[in-house]
C-alpha cells in the first residue's frame, strides 16, 4: 500500500527552480533513500513533504489524503540533532508528546520506556551537552520516533558522525527498524549508506532537480554484516556511480 505520495512537485526560490516534476512513493514498512549531490534540492523536497513549505505545483498525499502545506503529519529529523541545550534529554525527547498536549509527568514516563531500546539508558536527567555525538543522534531519533507518525523523513541523520560511530549507528538502526515498524524516507549523499539501509534508492539529479533513476536493492533484511563488502554491493555502487556520472556530463 502506498503510504506517502508526492506528485509533480515544483518549487523555486528567488526565481531559481530547485525541483521540477518530482514524484515519488513510499510504501508501508519501506526504507527509501533519496540520493543526490549537496544543494540538489533534497532538503527542499523534504520540507515540502513535511508541510513546512508550499510547492508552486504538485501535491503531497498521505494515505490518499491531501496534506500539501500541512505540517505535523510526518516525523521529521535533520542532520543537526537540534536537541535544545536547556532541556534534559528526557524533556527533549518528550517534546513531541508535550506539544501534542500530553501532561509533563506522563510524557516523561512514556519517553523513558524507550531509553534502553535506543541505547540511552541512564541519560534521562543529563543535558545534551553531556552526551556523545552518537548518543545525541540516537536521542534525536527517539524524539522523532515519539512523534509517532508512521512515516519518518530523515535528512542526513548520520552525516555529522565520525566513520566508526556512523557504522555502529547503521547496525543499530537496522536492528531498531525491525522492532518499530516505520516507513522511512532517508536523505543522504553517502552511497554506501544508501545501499546498506534501503529497499529502494531514488537518484535526484540535475538543476532543477528531478528523480532520474530508481534502483531496487534486492538483498534481504536484516542484512548480513558481509553485505557491504560483497560483489552485489559493489555492483549496485557501480550502477549508481555510472548514472551520476552520465547525469553530470549532460
Amino acid at each position: 500500500m502506498v503510504h506517502l505520495e508526492a506528485k509533480g512537485i515544483k518549487k523555486s526560490f528567488d526565481g531559481r527552480t530547485i525541483l521540477e516534476g518530482v514524484s515519488l512513493e513510499l510504501r508501508e514498512g519501506e526504507l527509501v533513500s533519496l540520493l543526490g549531490a549537496s544543494g540538489g534540492g533534497k532538503t527542499t523536497l523534504f520540507q515540502v513533504l513535511a508541510g513546512l513549505c508550499i510547492p508552486e505545483e504538485g501535491h503531497v498525499l498521505i494515505d490518499g489524503e491531501e496534506v500539501t502545506g500541512k505540517p505535523g503529519k510526518v516525523s521529521y529529523m535533520l542532520q543537526k540533532d537540534l536537541l535544545l541545550p536547556y532541556r534534559t534529554v528526557v524533556d527533549n525527547v518528550a517534546l513531541p508528546l508535550l506539544i501534542g498536549g500530553m501532561k509533563k509527568r506522563e510524557a516523561r514516563s512514556k519517553a523513558s520506556q524507550y531509553f534502553t531500546l535506543f541505547g540511552l539508558e541512564g541519560t534521562q536527567k543529563k543535558y545534551p551537552s553531556q552526551l556523545s555525538g552518537g548518543m545525541r543522534q540516537r536521542a534525536a531519533l527517539l524524539r522523532t520516533y515519539l512523534f509517532s507518525r508512521p512515516i519518518a523523513l530523515l535528512d542526513e541523520p548520520f552525516s555529522a558522525l565520525d566513520m566508526l560511530t556512523k557504522h555502529a549507528m547503521h547496525e543499530w538502526y537496522l536492528k531498531v527498524m525491525e522492532e518499530i515498524k516505520l516507513s522511512t524516507l532517508f536523505i543522504t549523499h553517502d552511497i554506501d549508506e544508501a545501499i546498506l539501509l534501503s529497499d529502494r534508492i531514488l537518484l535526484l539529479t540535475g538543476a532543477p532537480g528531478r528523480i532520474t533513476k530508481e534502483i531496487i536493492i534486492r538483498e534481504e533484511k536484516p542484512r548480513n554484516k558481509e553485505f557491504h563488502i560483497s560483489e552485489e554491493f559493489l555492483e549496485y555502487k557501480r550502477e549508481i556511480l555510472k548514472h551520476l556520472e552520465s547525469e553530470k556530463i549532460r
Binding site: 513546512l52 505535523g72 521529521y76 535533520l78 537540534l82 506539544i99
Partner: peptide, 11 residues
C-alpha cells in the same frame, strides 16, 4: 531549524 522542527511536530 529548531523552529521548523517544532513546526513539523505541529507546534
Amino acid at each position: 531549524d529548531a523552529v521548523s522542527l517544532l513546526r513539523s511536530m505541529g507546534a
